[in-house]
């Protein structure tokens, strides 16, 4: 093979690699955005209050933007805590998670790791979380809060 032909082949290969690796990097991106907090509102002492994942006002809402398969998991708090250290137990049930991809919603257990797939045409998924707060009969008045962490790891394209 002539040197010029060889050089042309190498250039062609470089262009090919550049074209392929560009979209490859795009496939490796995932963006997670928190859109709404989980809000129980006003609780009365002794009155268990649940916020459903389908609650359009009270449920937490996060958005995953990306394409491919992902593992979704949560760090769920066991309780809400006041600045004074008082606690309200929190329970996350097996249907307190809701995944929506292109208007198709399905419930899931937020305490278990979820495997989801976002097809190229869909590009994003919405995650909603509900829970049950259990203030005791002697629950001190005041504001309580806790942090929920959602982790998303891409496992495939």
């Amino acid at each position: 093979m002539r040197p010029r032909t060889m050089q042309a082949m190498w250039v062609a290969l470089a262009v090919f690699v550049a074209l392929i690796t560009g979209p490859g990097a795009a496939r490796g991106q995932v963006l997670v955005t928190a859109e709404r907090d989980l809000d129980f509102g006003l609780l009365s002492p002794g009155a268990v209050t649940a916020v459903a994942a389908t609650d359009l006002i009270g449920s937490a809402q996060l958005r995953i933007a990306g394409r491919g398969t992902f593992q979704v998991s949560f760090q769920l708090p066991a309780s809400l805590t006041s600045p004074n250290g008082d606690e309200i137990p929190l329970v996350f049930g097996p249907a307190d998670g809701m995944l929506t991809i292109r208007h198709k919603a399905s419930s899931f257990d937020p305490s278990a790791v979820q495997s989801i797939r976002i097809n190229p045409a869909e590009q994003e998924a919405q995650v909603n979380l509900g829970a049950r707060a259990q203030p005791g009969p002697a629950q001190p008045a005041g504001s309580y809060s806790a942090t929920i962490v959602m982790m998303v790891v891409q496992t495939g394209t």
Partner: peptide, 27 residues
């Protein structure tokens, strides 16, 4: 190297947080 980049595209991870809040009413 080019072939390796094709076979092992970069995998990504991300995380975000939301806050759970409640107010216990005076009783």
């Amino acid at each position: 190297a080019a072939v390796t980049m094709l076979v092992l595209p970069g995998m990504a991870s991300a995380q975000s947080t939301v806050t759970a809040t409640a107010t216990v009413s005076p009783a």
